[in-house]
Simulated scan of single mutants.
Amino acid sequence: MHSSAVQRLAVALLLSACASTTLAGTTHTPQQVPGVYHQQIGQLQVTALFDGTVALGRQELVGIDPGAVTRLLDHRYVPEDNKGLQTAVNAYLVQRGNHLTLVDAGTAQCFGPGLGQVLTNLRAAGYTPDQVDDVLLTHAHPDHLCGLLDTHGKLAFPKATVWLSKADADYWLDPASESTAPQPLRFAFKLARDAVAPYAATGTLRRFAPGDALPAGVTALDSHGHTPGHVSYLVDGGAGQQLLVWGDIVHFHAVQFTRPDASYEADSDRNAAIASRRHTMAEAAGNGWWVAGAHLPFPGLGHVRREDDAFAWVPGEFAPLPEK
Rank of each mutant, 00 (worst) to 15 (best):
V54F: 12
A197M: 13
G240E: 11
R207T: 14
E178Y: 04
T70F: 04
A319M: 14
A312M: 07
A254Y: 08
D51A: 10
P315H: 09
C110W: 03
L72Q: 10
F318G: 14
V255N: 05
F187D: 06
S263T: 14
A156C: 06
A55W: 07
G247L: 01
L119G: 02
V135T: 04
A176W: 02
P175F: 02
G225A: 11
D174F: 07
D74Y: 11
A124L: 03
H303P: 00
R123Y: 01
L73F: 06
K159G: 09
Y92G: 00
A125W: 03
L244V: 07
K154F: 05
Q131R: 03
G67R: 08
L100R: 03
R8I: 10
N287Y: 01
R206Q: 12
G238M: 10
D194Q: 11
R96W: 01
L173T: 10
K166Q: 10
F257D: 00
K190A: 13
P182C: 05
E265P: 00
P228Q: 09
A88F: 03
V304C: 08
P210S: 08
P315C: 13
V62D: 01
H303E: 01
G67P: 03
V69A: 06
T258A: 14
P297I: 00
N287C: 02
F208K: 10
S165D: 11
A124T: 02
D51C: 05
T219V: 13
G97L: 04
Q117S: 04
L119V: 09
A292C: 05
R71A: 14
L115E: 08
G238Y: 09
I249T: 15
V62L: 15
T21K: 14
A105T: 03
D170N: 11
V245S: 08
I64N: 00
H152T: 12
G116S: 05
A195C: 06
G217K: 15
E178H: 04
A254Q: 11
L145K: 00
V78L: 06
P320G: 11
L73Y: 04
A55R: 13
D143T: 11
E265M: 09
L23T: 10
P66N: 12
A310P: 00
D150E: 04
S3W: 15
Q117F: 04
A48L: 08
K190W: 05
A209D: 15
G116C: 04
K83E: 09
D248R: 09
V255H: 12
I249F: 00
G300A: 09
T22N: 14
K154P: 00
A284T: 05
A197F: 09
Q242A: 10
G114Y: 06
P129V: 07
